[in-house]
């Protein structure tokens, strides 16, 4: 199924912090956006800001890390790890967070939200 895309401008590229997160409010939804900067490239990820286990809007304030080849965000409350690509929680199969499309156009960061 090919879902319609809806890219919305969120902020400037330099509002993001290397290897850290910020949070955007889009249509009442909180979305955590991360910039993972390695030597040669920058990767962008966006997931829901809601920590389903800690039950608070805090994921953007977590640490970015890696587990084997997966890039993860680690909840600041109780340290569960969520895969930034799939949203799956690596510490509890029952849990996951929604994943959003994110891209950089020029110096603008855009999210794909409905």
């Amino acid at each position: 199924m090919n879902k319609e895309q809806n890219w919305t401008d969120i902020c400037k590229l330099d509002d993001l912090v290397d290897n850290s997160g910020v949070c955007a409010l889009v249509n009442g939804e909180q979305v955590a956006i991360f910039k993972v900067q390695t030597k040669d490239e920058a990767q962008f990820y966006a997931v829901s800001n809601w920590d389903p286990i800690g039950k608070a809007n805090v994921l953007y304030r977590g640490l970015i890390g890696s587990v084997a080849d997966k890039t993860v965000i680690i909840s600041p409350l109780y340290k569960q790890r969520y895969c930034l690509q799939s949203g799956a929680c690596l510490d509890d199969e029952q849990q996951n967070v929604s994943v959003y499309g994110v891209r950089v156009e020029g110096d603008k960061v855009q999210l794909d939200v409905v």
Partner: peptide, 16 residues
Amino acid sequence: KRFRQFVNSDESDKNV
């Protein structure tokens, strides 16, 4: 700048 709830809004977290 890091102490903002939202990059794109001055609202605060409604869940708090």
